[in-house]
Amino acid sequence: MTESKKFEDEKRIDRRQFLVGGGAALAAGALAAGVPGTAKAASPQSNARKASYPKSEAYLVYDSRLCLGCQSCMFACSLTHEGVANPSLSRIQIIRDAPSFTKYPYDVVIAVCRQCVSPLCVQVCPTGACFIDEANGNIRRIDQSKCVGCQRCIQSCPQKPHRTIWDSVKLKSTKCDLCEGAPFWNEKGGPEGKQACVETCPVHALKLVKKAPNQRDIDGYDVNLAPPPRKITFPGMGAPEPAAKKGGE
């Protein structure tokens, strides 16, 4: 048995033991009680349900009409966080409908972690692995060393598709940390820093904002980031292209 296989099997056992043994009771209790977690006060044993959580100090917003669907952000995310190019491990998912031919602008779905004001993923985590990082602008993060792979954060995510990501090799969850903990990101991340997805987007369809967007629907996160229309001319070759109507149309 290879080391990596052995590691995987051990992790599977961890998860299974957790689910069928004491962990299951803990998890069930945690889910019922909605255990909150923060970096300072995360405690899976705590039954105290917080009425509210400190808001994240930054949010990722996007322009679904401007986005090219090129998935640059996905590669930047998995490269800087996991050190591999793997879209399935990207914390931002750009879902292209090609080849199923939904018409613009519904042909691309942009799935970013919303850093929810009321983060269910944090609430339901039985081990405190999913926590609020108060030392870094209250980002909702996952500490994989504490994750037991119960997937409750994934099941509880109210977004479709869910924004918490399942790592099928490590058998743990992960999620957007605004690049605060990205080991292969050579720039400062977090709410006061830069994000790999934002920086690599070729059309500037992603942006970090400080104010919490409207939480009720996607409109709060799907915003107009289009620059002023740019006229392109071809000298000696006729009229310029018509100005964009909106966004990147």
Binding site: C67, L68, G69, Q71, S72, M74, P105, P202, E249
Partner: peptide
């Protein structure tokens, strides 16, 4: 072509000018 894209898009027309 924009200096972007993870796959091989967009082409010169950008592949989302599909309005």
């Amino acid at each position: 072509a924009s200096p972007g894209t993870g796959s091989c898009m967009p082409c010169i027309n950008n592949d989302r000018k599909r309005n």
